[in-house]
Lab assay of single mutants.
Amino acid sequence: MQIFVKTATGKTITLEVEPSDTIENVKAKIQDKEGIPPDQQRLAFAGKQLEDGRTLSDYNIQKESTLHLALR
C-alpha cells in the first residue's frame, strides 16, 4: 500500500509499505529515499509519536495515510 510522509520542510515522500511493516522498517525506507538516518527520525500520526517496534497496523495506519516526520 502507499503512504505519504510529510517532512518538516513541507516535502511529501511517497512510500510503498505493508500494514505489517514496523515503524523501524518505514524509517529505513525513508533513509533509502532521503538519506536521513533512522535514529534522527521521529514519526507521528494523528498526533501520536510512533514507536520503532510497533507496526503500521498497530496504529491503524491505512493506505494513503500521511505520517509526519520530524528530525531530532
Rank of each mutant, 00 (worst) to 15 (best):
32 D>R: 08
26 V>E: 00
67 L>I: 14
48 K>D: 08
10 G>V: 04
27 K>M: 06
46 A>I: 10
71 L>D: 14
27 K>S: 02
67 L>E: 01
10 G>C: 03
60 N>R: 15
64 E>F: 09
36 I>P: 04
12 T>L: 12
56 L>E: 00
17 V>W: 02
35 G>Y: 04
54 R>M: 06
69 L>C: 03
13 I>V: 07
66 T>A: 05
36 I>S: 12
4 F>W: 12
57 S>E: 09
61 I>E: 00
12 T>M: 14
11 K>H: 11
46 A>K: 07
67 L>G: 01
1 M>D: 03
41 Q>V: 08
36 I>F: 13
35 G>T: 06
53 G>T: 08
68 H>P: 01
29 K>D: 03
21 D>V: 06
63 K>A: 10
66 T>Q: 09
8 A>L: 12
62 Q>Y: 14
5 V>C: 03
18 E>W: 10
39 D>W: 10
71 L>M: 05
8 A>E: 08
44 A>I: 07
16 E>I: 14
32 D>L: 14
39 D>H: 06
66 T>P: 02
17 V>H: 03
9 T>P: 07
21 D>M: 07
45 F>L: 09
18 E>A: 06
5 V>D: 00
19 P>A: 09
19 P>S: 08
28 A>L: 12
20 S>W: 11
3 I>C: 02
31 Q>A: 15
61 I>C: 02
38 P>L: 15
61 I>F: 02
23 I>W: 01
45 F>H: 07
72 R>A: 13
36 I>A: 05
3 I>W: 00
70 A>M: 13
41 Q>W: 06
25 N>I: 06
34 E>M: 10
36 I>C: 03
68 H>L: 13
34 E>S: 08
72 R>G: 12
58 D>V: 05
41 Q>T: 06
33 K>R: 15
51 E>A: 05
9 T>L: 08
14 T>F: 04
62 Q>F: 14
30 I>N: 01
19 P>M: 08
47 G>M: 03
47 G>I: 02
9 T>E: 07
49 Q>W: 05
15 L>K: 00
16 E>G: 08
19 P>W: 06
16 E>S: 11
17 V>D: 00
39 D>M: 08
39 D>P: 05
47 G>T: 07
46 A>W: 06
51 E>P: 03
51 E>K: 05
21 D>I: 08
16 E>D: 14
72 R>T: 06
24 E>R: 05
46 A>S: 09
42 R>E: 13
40 Q>R: 09
38 P>H: 15
59 Y>K: 01
64 E>R: 10
51 E>T: 04
5 V>I: 07
22 T>D: 10
55 T>D: 04
52 D>R: 04
42 R>G: 15
51 E>V: 09
7 T>P: 07
68 H>N: 15
55 T>C: 03
1 M>W: 09
2 Q>H: 12
17 V>R: 00
29 K>M: 07
32 D>V: 08
42 R>H: 14
50 L>T: 02
39 D>F: 08
16 E>Q: 12
28 A>G: 04
32 D>I: 14
15 L>C: 02
51 E>I: 09
55 T>P: 07
29 K>E: 04
4 F>P: 01
39 D>C: 04
5 V>Q: 00
42 R>L: 12
27 K>W: 02
20 S>P: 03
26 V>M: 04
60 N>L: 15
68 H>I: 05
67 L>H: 01
9 T>I: 06
54 R>W: 12
